[in-house]
């Protein structure tokens, strides 16, 4: 049976991890490749790199990070941040990414997702949705790191973009991101139940119970977290044991 995935996410800027990974003795905690190796060894099911300062000029830096990571890690790698065109997708796939994530570009032009999925297959096209609660049971897409409202309903967008060919949704609750108060469960469930493709829950994890809630109550197929792992509060193994004890099927390594 398919297992629920635990995905650590590393924010990368100019080829460096923004908040270094602290749970093992790394020679260079700011090196994304070393951090990725540590997570691979720790039993992470996938990895996610988010290029938070993606610009045209520093693209080569990220490609180099992806290339070196792919040479050292034998688990799937998703890369997002600044992806705008099918060519951007192609460059990252050739560098060694397994999946590439669209964000703002998919909101501005949903057809770019269709073009990328037709060319490379839905299996490698992720769409990252950043949503905020606007009224109870109503969520709106925000872009530009949560600063720009779009007026687009998040659930409708998720349905439409998976029809276009998105193979997975990376859903971040902008209300919860950074709060450590847990996932936005109603939002997660509304989207997970609305689409046929896997949904990764993101934003707000502070405890291991939150991971359980995202899957059990939010119906997510995977959970993404950053700080609870990066700072050594919990290991991947502890997270998996906790989820297994709650009756969630995970891959124990």
């Amino acid at each position: 049976m398919l297992k629920t995935r635990i995905i650590p996410c590393l924010d990368v800027a100019d080829g460096r991890v923004v908040k270094g990974v602290n749970f093992v003795d790394l020679v260079d905690a700011g090196d994304p490749v070393e951090s990725a190796r540590a997570y691979d060894a720790a039993g992470a099911d996938e990895l996610c790199f988010l290029d938070i300062h993606a610009t045209h000029e520093n693209r080569g830096t990220m490609h180099d990070v992806v290339r070196r990571t792919a040479e050292n890690c034998y688990i799937p790698l998703t890369v997002g941040g600044g992806v705008r065109t099918p060519e951007d997708v192609r460059d990252l796939l050739l560098a060694g990414a397994d999946k590439v994530s669209f964000n703002s570009a998919a909101v501005a032009d949903p057809d770019v997702v269709a073009r990328a999925a037709d060319r490379f297959g839905s299996q490698c096209i992720v769409v990252a949705i950043d949503a905020k609660t606007v009224s109870p049971g109503k969520w709106e897409i925000f872009t530009h790191g949560g600063r720009k409202a779009t007026g687009i309903d998040a659930v409708e967008f998720a349905r439409m973009i998976t029809d276009k060919g998105a193979g997975e949704i990376l859903l971040t609750s902008m209300d919860r991101d950074g709060t450590r108060a847990g996932f936005n469960i109603p939002l997660t469930r509304a989207i997970a139940d609305a689409v046929d493709v896997p949904v990764i829950a993101s934003g707000g994890v502070g405890t291991l119970d939150h991971l359980v809630e995202g899957v059990r109550d939010g119906h997510a197929s995977a959970v993404l977290a950053a700080s609870i792992f990066h700072f050594g509060e919990y290991t991947i193994a502890q997270a998996k044991e906790h989820m297994a004890a709650a009756g969630i099927e995970v891959r124990l390594t």
Partner: peptide, 12 residues
């Protein structure tokens, strides 16, 4: 029907 397609992730 709760199972998603693509079949994506680790299976035994």
């Amino acid at each position: 029907p709760a199972l998603k397609v693509p079949h994506m992730g680790w299976n035994d």
